[in-house]
Design a protein around this nucleic acid. Structure first.
Lengths: 147, 147
DNA sequence: CTTAAGCGCGTAGTCAGGTACGGAGTCAAC
DNA sequence: GTTGACTCCGTACCTGACTACGCGCTTAAG
């Protein structure tokens, strides 16, 4: 029932070896996501002891957390793959360049969204003012083609 | 060679009937995109004169432009489908509600991106200051898991 | 009449980032 | 020594928004 071989949290001692399920739980992702990252080359596939079950060390978990952190910064999995190649910390310039491009990217997206925000806000206000009219301003603006 | 039946722009007279290629060109989309929208129910499929070629009126083009305009406002195709049902302009309240939800949505995306922007900006500055150090701040922050 | 661009239609593929499934194997515990 | 939880692996499926392909047909021009 409970207490099976995976349910033991590898808390007590450092550098125990974990199952994929334990890594997934610790990294707060789906087991399938780990396999997916392995297929994408973002996570290593530990050797499988003849006929047994693969065991993962905390380096894999660290790498998983790295991936999640980079995702939160808006990097795509492909970009994360590039960052991971720089993981030894000796390629600061390249890493910074990737970050700089991503920052550019994020800023463009922000300004696009702000334009959209302003347009929507304006339309909604016009709708509010036009309450009960024959033609809805939002719809008619869309019909006119908008920009 | 040139001057074939599609190359004639329906400019001269209003309300000529166009081929799919002409509509696509006028709407600045791919022919396949129009077919795709038809399959999604966003554009009508005009009747096909027995064994002939479908002809599109300017209402279809207007609808296509409506779709493009709504896309620029950040609506998904599914949401655009809903907006199109309100196209007669008599459902202002519903349309406004859709727009309001989309505005909410856009604002959330903006604030997410601003958080990312700040984090990236900070990291890049740290990288700039750490020039030539052993460990890259960007990488080490990612390694630490970041939030 | 032939040529060639473009249409009609259905099916299938793409990309990102996963999620789900099913059958067989493994492991720990009762 | 069987149960039950979980692993392994391959493959398929998902959403969103398209894009491509292939075959045969239509149309206009030369």
């Amino acid at each position: 029932m409970f207490g099976d071989f995976r349910a033991v949290p590898p808390s007590s001692m450092a550098s125990k070896l974990w199952t994929i399920g334990q890594v997934a739980k610790a990294g707060e992702v789906n087991v399938e996501t780990i396999r997916f990252y392995q297929r994408k080359g973002l996570l290593p596939v530990p050797p499988r002891p003849y006929g047994g079950i693969r065991r993962y060390d905390q380096k894999t978990l660290a790498r998983l957390k790295f991936i999640q952190a980079a995702k939160r910064l808006g990097f795509s999995l492909e970009e994360i793959g590039q960052l991971l190649k720089l993981e030894d910390g000796t390629h600061c310039a390249e890493a910074r360049e990737l970050a700089r491009r991503k920052l550019e990217d994020v800023r463009v997206r922000i300004s696009d969204l702000k334009r959209i925000e302003a347009a929507l806000d304006d339309l909604i206000q016009r709708c509010d003012r036009a309450e009960g009219q024959i033609c809805c301003p939002l719809i008619s603006v869309l019909e006119s083609g908008l920009k």
